[in-house]
């Protein structure tokens, strides 16, 4: 091993020459990963755009079954969590680990609130037989279009919800780490990376909300 030549920095992994290279690599890696996520959701969003135009009356009818108020609350919840996540990164950069933990806690609570609201929305759909499959039932002429809408609704929000769940786990692990090492100097990069991921999850919802809940207009 030829690592003796370099000074031993506990925050530096062996393959890197210095902390700057390490930080740049992790941040770039995260951005490239998020690009894959854009295209991952992009394929489904394309499907949604196409079918929305093919079956617009059915989609407009079906979307009335979604509660735009609950969706709106969830939007505000996620925006708030994005804000507190940004603040957590800031606190981490300032090495104020108490504040950082506080902001991360709010973020996780928001994420959980989002999932709870989603759970209530989903169970209402199950009750009303709006879940695609053998139990699907919809009175009206646009059976196919409505089922397509709900199929895409569940695929899109399901995958997004999965990302929220992963976010909760990742933020949880991060909080544990920060708490355990609170007495010593820490690298802010893990928080920054989790933050980037979390903001992306927020962005997906920023698009899903108007696409699914507001399409074709809502009535107050």
């Amino acid at each position: 091993m030829s690592t003796e030549t370099q000074e031993h920095d506990p925050l530096l992994a062996h393959q890197f020459e210095d902390v700057e290279q390490q930080t740049d690599s992790y941040v770039l890696g995260m951005w490239v990963f998020l690009v894959t996520e854009v295209l991952f959701f992009g394929g489904m969003i394309l499907a949604f755009i196409l079918y929305r135009n093919m079956y617009f009356p059915a989609f407009a009818e079906a979307h009335q079954k979604l509660d735009w108020r609950l969706g709106g609350v969830n939007t505000i919840v996620l925006l708030t969590s994005s804000f507190t996540m940004a603040m957590a990164v800031w606190a981490s950069q300032k090495r104020d680990y108490g504040k950082q933990l506080m902001f991360l806690t709010i973020t996780v609570l928001c994420a959980l609130a989002f999932l709870v609201i989603k759970y209530f929305e989903y169970s209402a759909k199950f009750e009303h037989h709006l879940v695609p499959g053998t139990n699907f039932h919809f009175d009206g002429q646009n059976q196919n279009g409505v089922q397509l809408f709900f199929g895409l609704y569940f695929a899109l929000t399901g995958l997004h919800g999965f990302h929220v769940l992963v976010g909760v786990l990742v933020i949880g692990v991060l909080m544990f780490r920060v708490w355990k090492l609170r007495k010593q100097e820490q690298d802010y990069v893990p928080t920054e990376l989790v933050g980037l991921y979390w903001h992306f999850v927020d962005i997906v919802w920023i698009f899903l909300y108007p696409m699914l809940y507001l399409l074709g207009g809502v009535h107050i």
Partner: peptide, 12 residues
């Protein structure tokens, strides 16, 4: 699920 995102018989 048996739905029809790509199945023309079910609108896909």
């Amino acid at each position: 699920t048996g739905m029809g995102i790509f199945d023309p018989a079910r609108g896909g």
